[in-house]
Amino acid sequence: MSSLLLPERELIDCIKDQRELNIEEVMAFMSFNKKFILKIIENLKTKNILHFDSIQRIKLNQAEIEKVNTNKENLEEEVSDILRDLFRAYLLRKDFVMDFVMEGIWMSPFEEKLLQCKKAELTSLLSSMRKNRPKVGFSKKLIVYAGCDYSRLSRFSVDSLGS
């Protein structure tokens, strides 16, 4: 099963919940030109993710997307690519990267609770924004955040070698 490349994933995100494809609109939401967007559409068609009678009448194959989204290998590849590209862009000081924070911090139990509260606030904010649909004036941001027990991740990294 094919995994999705980032521009393909972005296009799916842009056109989901839409029955008609307005290329001009998609161009406004994505930073690619028409030829390239048509190429992505062609790729998605090859992957059986997109069906269309004409370029205006499109249909996403939700079952196939679900298959891609639940395939662990695919997800690992996609997420690894995103994190690598994000970090590369950050290192190259690209102005579209807002921030990239990765640091080990000692925390007291109280501070851990405090962080959990802040995380709950953030989760709720993101969840409310998730209902937004593409609109003129909106811009799509990619939010990546994670937190974990440093020592257990370290152990996992050596533990999972060869698995």
């Binding site: 094919s2 490349l5 030109n33 390239f36 290998e73």
Partner: peptide
């Protein structure tokens, strides 16, 4: 093979982008 095919897809798409970018 799977990584190869994904890598190949990425390169193809990058190359197409190179050919068609404004």
């Amino acid at each position: 093979k799977k990584i190869n095919s994904r890598e190949m897809e990425k390169r193809n798409l990058s190359y197409f982008y190179f050919l068609t970018e404004d």
